Computed example of a mutant assay.
Amino acid sequence: MSDTNISLIVYGKNDLRLEERPIPEPGPKEVQISMRSVGVCGSDLSFWEKGRLGNLILSAPKVSGHEPSGVVTKLGSEVTHLKVGDRVAVEPSKPCGNCFYCRRGLYNHCSKPINSGVLTRYISHPANFVYRLPDNMSFDEGALVQPMALAFYACERAGLRAGQNLLVTGAGCLGMTVVLAAKVFGANKICVTDVLQKRLDFIHKIGADVTVLVEDNENPELAAKRLVGMMGVEPDISIETSGSQSATSTAIYANRPHGMILQLGFSIDTVQIPLVVATFKELDIRGNHTSRNSYDKAIEAIASGRVNVKQLISHRFPLEKSLTAFKTAASKEGAKVIIDCSRPNGI
């Protein structure tokens, strides 16, 4: 296999392939980027393991990955705020800019998005969604700007304020970034639940105040009573990151009246929740789709040291060993898996 633009393509359930693709040339408002570090996300695993992500069904082969950093290698004719050689983080959005939502600044809800992956040697991307990295940030940290931006956006969507108590259901990578972001927002007490003790042990080290091990089949109402007892207070806000139906129900039972439930994780299309309980408590339940206008905030928080994302990285693999990287991430060993897309000669 030649070494020009090797790309990791997901064809369907349990079908990942490394293939050669043309090197894309940038359009007038785009830049070409040589990919460096790319994080493996739970949504990448879902498309590989299930051929779908919630109600998003893989209908054609696609390049995987959406947590990238890299180096600018070519400029489009109209790009002036970047230069060749810039080290950058890339917001994977490719909104159309003209639909009802884009015209109102809600580009994360674009009606005609172009979903192109980044686990490849080169991409071309709209320059407005490319962000220069400070000199003190590594490519690995640049790759984690995307999940941190999502976590910052989630905390904003939930209305998290200093001094509030927070429940996070799910101690995976998404739960970890939410904990880090919540600390920046000034959360008082943070409780995290998960079905794996090793994940709870790790998330306690990075900022969770209380961790609660729950069982897959545990009654959500009883689990809620148990975690509230361990917290010593009802959470003001709950952010659900696991996509588990029982976790959402647990959050509803646990949350204080007039509180907020933010559904960040998802897996199946339809879930059953104790809606009457949520109604009587007058809970606000909000959804969350990717992020919007959060990259600058995430980069500043990482560069300033307020957020340490390096502690999340447990494994690194070259692009040629992507299947091993995906299997490692799926095994839930460690925390964040990074794939290095650099060419062997560093170009």
Results as ranks from 00 to 15, higher is better:
residue 272 Q to W: 06
residue 174 L to V: 14
residue 246 S to T: 14
residue 275 L to T: 10
residue 164 Q to K: 04
residue 190 I to D: 05
residue 202 F to Y: 12
residue 216 D to R: 15
residue 201 D to P: 04
residue 224 A to L: 07
residue 188 N to T: 02
residue 256 R to A: 12
residue 173 C to K: 01
residue 259 G to P: 10
residue 230 M to T: 14
residue 281 K to A: 03
residue 230 M to Q: 15
residue 263 Q to E: 13
residue 184 V to F: 06
residue 176 M to F: 09
residue 202 F to A: 09
residue 288 N to Y: 01
residue 280 F to W: 12
residue 249 S to F: 05
residue 265 G to R: 01
residue 287 G to C: 03
residue 174 L to N: 12
residue 216 D to E: 14
residue 261 I to A: 06
residue 225 K to G: 03
residue 278 A to F: 02
residue 160 L to I: 01
residue 231 M to Q: 06
residue 236 D to N: 11
residue 237 I to N: 02
residue 238 S to M: 03
residue 230 M to A: 15
residue 226 R to V: 11
residue 179 V to H: 09
residue 191 C to P: 00
residue 220 P to F: 07
residue 238 S to D: 04
residue 227 L to W: 08
residue 229 G to Q: 07
residue 204 H to E: 14
residue 292 R to L: 15
residue 234 E to Q: 15
residue 259 G to F: 11
residue 235 P to I: 04
residue 269 D to W: 13
residue 283 L to P: 03
residue 288 N to L: 14
residue 241 T to Y: 00
residue 245 Q to I: 01
residue 213 L to Q: 11
residue 290 T to P: 00
residue 202 F to D: 10
residue 218 E to T: 13
residue 182 A to G: 03
residue 191 C to I: 01
residue 280 F to P: 00
residue 185 F to L: 10
residue 166 L to R: 05
residue 270 T to G: 00
residue 217 N to L: 11
residue 225 K to E: 13
residue 239 I to M: 07
residue 170 G to M: 06
residue 281 K to C: 02
residue 164 Q to L: 04
residue 263 Q to D: 08
residue 271 V to A: 05
residue 272 Q to A: 11
residue 231 M to N: 11
residue 212 V to M: 15
residue 260 M to R: 08
residue 240 E to T: 04
residue 179 V to P: 06
residue 170 G to R: 05
residue 292 R to A: 09
residue 175 G to V: 11
residue 266 F to A: 10
residue 183 K to L: 11
residue 171 A to V: 03
residue 238 S to L: 03
residue 254 A to T: 05
residue 166 L to M: 05
residue 163 G to H: 01
residue 294 S to L: 05
residue 251 A to S: 14
residue 189 K to V: 13
residue 262 L to T: 12
residue 226 R to Y: 06
residue 209 D to N: 15
residue 273 I to A: 08
residue 171 A to L: 04
residue 258 H to A: 13
residue 242 S to P: 03
residue 275 L to W: 08
residue 244 S to V: 03
residue 264 L to F: 12
residue 251 A to V: 00
residue 240 E to W: 02
residue 202 F to P: 06
residue 186 G to M: 02
residue 221 E to F: 07
residue 260 M to L: 00
residue 234 E to N: 14
residue 206 I to N: 11
residue 205 K to W: 00
residue 196 L to R: 14
residue 246 S to A: 12
residue 248 T to F: 11
residue 261 I to H: 04
